[in-house]
Design a protein around this nucleic acid. Sequence first.
DNA 1: CTACGTGCAAATACTTTGCTGGATT
DNA 2: AATCCAGCAAAGTATTTGCACGTAG
Lengths: 119, 119
Amino acid sequence: MTKNSKMILDIVNSSHDHPTADQIFIRAKEQNSKVVLATVYNNLNSLVKEGKIRRIAVSGKPDCYDNTFRHDHTVCVKCGALSDIMIDDITEEIKSKLGDSFVSYDLNVSYICDECREK
Amino acid sequence: MTKNSKMILDIVNSSHDHPTADQIFIRAKEQNSKVVLATVYNNLNSLVKEGKIRRIAVSGKPDCYDNTFRHDHTVCVKCGALSDIMIDDITEEIKSKLGDSFVSYDLNVSYICDECREK
DNA sequence: CTACGTGCAAATACTTTGCTGGATT
DNA sequence: AATCCAGCAAAGTATTTGCACGTAG
């Protein structure tokens, strides 16, 4: 585990706002003026592959990164804001359909956030 | 509803392989030699906005499009293959947490498909 | 005759890759 | 000395946008 890799893992784990690669890059530069965006991408890819962080795909936005604590996400259909939500774990139900080949699941809920709803 | 828009909707609804914009473009050209990729993208965006089709975001792959029949998806973590799966509808549970602002949800299950598992 | 969809080309956004040099073991 | 990571620049892929024209209401 290299210095950059550890730094990026820490940034993801200590950020609660689902940062994109670019935002992680900016935060990394505050700590290490030399890191470059490609390195951030490379490390994020490794960390995802190792299962140390989670990648969230939202169409129309760059990928976001998150810790691996079990939880789900909401996406506002108007402004794209991403938040956490906790829905009961459905791993067992999925496993009963898929068997051992199951790896994980992602649940993204579309909704209209409070700010957008006011309008 | 224009001719292109109708054609693209038909392609999505009659395809059961979750085509990307590019694949839809190729199929569209088989029917209408003049359509252009940007028009396909524009129409897909409109159709998604109108709720007539569904967009599936999978990180590392281009967005895929699907009909709006309620079902969920599996993604092979090795080869990226996308398939359908039917998990019990959890709309009610989500609504009980989110209330009326709920719009829809997407459930993507990561697993290892049979072909990749052999290796 | 007005509005809107389309073709086209170019621009933008996001992400990956190849190469080289340096750090770490 | 060998390996692997990082910096850098460039390429690659996906998607959007601006403009001008044509068609349909």
